[in-house]
């Protein structure tokens, strides 16, 4: 039963985005040329590039229900829509973590030097944060494109002008310390919980994703 649910949801929601995320990670490894990177270059690859897999995978969890036909069909079912979303979310987060860890492993095999545990955690925290931001906006507004847009905007604000000592700074690994990572990981989890809470209050958990324009 559980296996069936996971397999079905993977096929519906994650087959395309999963393929895109794998392609993106592989392309990053190639164009960044991950052989013999030092700590700084490794941090750039992991937290400024591969963390974008969080955006691709997690922010798009509500995407299938953007189609009115699927939304109406899901809304008519008796099972909890939130349970379906949780399953997809769990899969998306797991794939995201595995991709980051896999690339970090490949980088180390190719002679790059960095503390693997801290870097995987740091890159994953960034990925989860931007993914959760997109997930939240998408889940509350009913518009996945808006979710992508807000998450990308926050990502770029951090690249361009954000204060580097902010607790919500996404790229603190490149500064050599990663001080903001635990905070953004906690906030990412809070955003996901808040999205479910808002949807539960609005009753959208039972009748499929609410839709705005």
């Amino acid at each position: 039963m559980l296996f069936h649910l996971i397999r079905t949801q993977f096929r519906i929601a994650l087959s395309k985005t999963g393929a895109a995320a794998i392609l993106f990670t592989a392309a990053t490894a190639l164009y960044a040329d991950v052989r013999g990177l030092d700590w700084y270059a490794s941090a750039v690859v992991l937290e400024r590039f591969v963390s974008l897999t969080g955006l691709i995978l997690i922010a798009s969890v509500f995407l299938p229900e953007q189609d009115r036909g699927i939304r109406e069909l899901v809304g008519a079912k008796a099972f909890s829509f939130n349970k379906i979303i949780m399953t997809r979310l769990f899969l998306a987060v797991a794939i995201c973590f595995l991709l980051i860890a896999a690339l970090a492993f490949v980088m180390m095999m190719c002679g790059s030097r960095f503390p693997a545990g801290a870097y995987i955690f740091g890159a994953f925290a960034t990925a989860l944060f931007i993914g959760a931001l997109g997930f939240g906006v998408s889940g509350i507004s009913g518009n996945t494109i808006a979710g992508y847009l807000v998450a990308v905007a926050y990502f770029f604000m951090n690249m361009m002008e954000a204060p580097k000592d902010s607790a919500l700074y996404l790229f603190s690994l490149s500064g050599g310390n990663g001080y903001s990572k635990p905070t953004i990981l906690i906030i990412a989890c809070a955003m996901i919980a808040l999205t479910f809470a808002v949807r539960a209050l609005r009753g959208s958990g039972k009748r499929g994703a609410g839709i705005l324009r």
Partner: peptide, 26 residues
Amino acid sequence: YSDISGEALYERRGYAHYNKFGFLHN
């Protein structure tokens, strides 16, 4: 030295250069 692990991270053992996609390499 990294604040995360205390390991010597900030090191250079090569010629610093940027590859064609703008990544810093040694």
